[in-house]
Design a protein around this nucleic acid. Structure first.
Length: 128
DNA sequence: GTTGTGACTTTAA
DNA sequence: ATTAAAGCCACAA
């Protein structure tokens, strides 16, 4: 398994039950702030039951069209939804209430031994 | 090197 | 509230 996949798995495994993280947040914690899309690709290939890939959702609370089980698996964990009065496929996660507030120091390789962090560039923060 | 492919995100209509 | 367009990134051809 390549390092990128391993790093993404490490982050996703850290998402607690009943909480969710956007692809973008996972990318951020994985040390690749703009690699949300690439995170999606990893999830697409993920067959490891130990990785709670259903807890990774769109930034606006909507879910990937091609992952039908996701809604039910989240519901089973008590993840709150909004739009309970519209088509099932439209219902979105109440991100405001269950977004994972990650602890930075140790989780996901920050400050720990594992994570590869890239030096910040102008593109990462225009304020630089 | 280049090109194409997405379980993405943000912005502008 | 939708929808489209344009970025963005890792990966495999």
């Amino acid at each position: 398994m390549d390092p990128w996949t391993a790093q993404v798995y490490r982050v996703v495994r850290a998402i607690p039950r009943g909480r969710v993280a956007s692809y973008g947040l996972v990318a951020l914690l994985a040390g690749r702030p703009r690699a949300a899309r690439a995170v999606g690709n990893v999830m697409l290939e993920c067959r490891d039951p130990g990785v709670p890939c259903h807890r990774v959702i769109h930034a606006d609370g909507s879910l990937a069209a091609s992952f039908p089980d996701q809604r039910e698996r989240l519901r089973r964990e008590g993840v709150p939804f909004v739009g309970a009065r519209v088509p099932v496929a439209r219902a979105r996660v109440d991100v405001g209430r269950c977004l994972w507030r990650a602890r930075l120091p140790r989780e996901a390789g920050f400050g720990g031994s594992g994570g590869r962090l890239r030096r910040m560039t102008r593109k990462d923060s225009p304020a630089l």
